[in-house]
């Protein structure tokens, strides 16, 4: 009972920060500021029972990386070559693990999360990285 509760906490926490639709999908605009430079793209996520799965792509749809978050840990897959360095992957994994384990704005060590309206910001002070996620409106046909 306790183990089941702990496992399910991971999925509930991400839902508190991001808006998931009826199909369990969240679509956000992502802006990553690093050392004075800005990279923009999209982060799409799907929530299932105990796993959060996501893809980060640029506006053209070119993949940056896929990820899964489960039991407090983020795993990266299909990482684009320009990001596929062990120190970049490690930073991304740790930053995203911190982000998805939060339910509200908070600050811990070198990282902080802030939710402001439909924007969620994650700051990694040590590496001077800021991630900003903003909800995208769905296209209705």
């Amino acid at each position: 009972m306790v183990v089941w509760l702990l496992v399910s906490i991971g999925s509930v926490q991400a839902q508190a920060l991001f808006t998931f639709d009826d199909e369990g999908m969240a679509r956000t605009h992502l802006e990553l500021s690093a050392h004075g430079r800005d990279i923009t793209g999209l982060c799409l996520m799907r929530q299932s029972e105990d796993t959060l799965r996501g893809s980060v792509i640029n506006e053209f749809g070119i993949k940056a990386f896929d990820f899964t978050y489960r039991e407090g840990k983020t795993k990266l897959m299909n990482v684009a070559s320009f990001l596929n360095k062990w120190y970049i992957r490690r930073t991304l994994q740790r930053d995203l693990s911190f982000l998805f384990s939060q339910t509200t704005s908070c600050c811990r060590g070198q990282r902080s999360v802030e939710k402001n309206g439909d924007t969620v910001s994650l700051v990694n002070k040590r590496h001077k990285l800021t991630y900003r996620f903003r909800n995208l409106d769905e296209i209705t046909e």
Binding site: E23, M25, R27, L42, L44, M45, R46, R53, G54, S55, I57, E59, G61, D66, T68, M77, N78, I139
Partner: peptide, 13 residues
């Protein structure tokens, strides 16, 4: 854009 990991689509115009 169909994302295989998510089995979901991203639509844009």
């Amino acid at each position: 854009k169909h994302l295989s990991l998510l089995d979901g689509d991203m639509k844009s115009q």
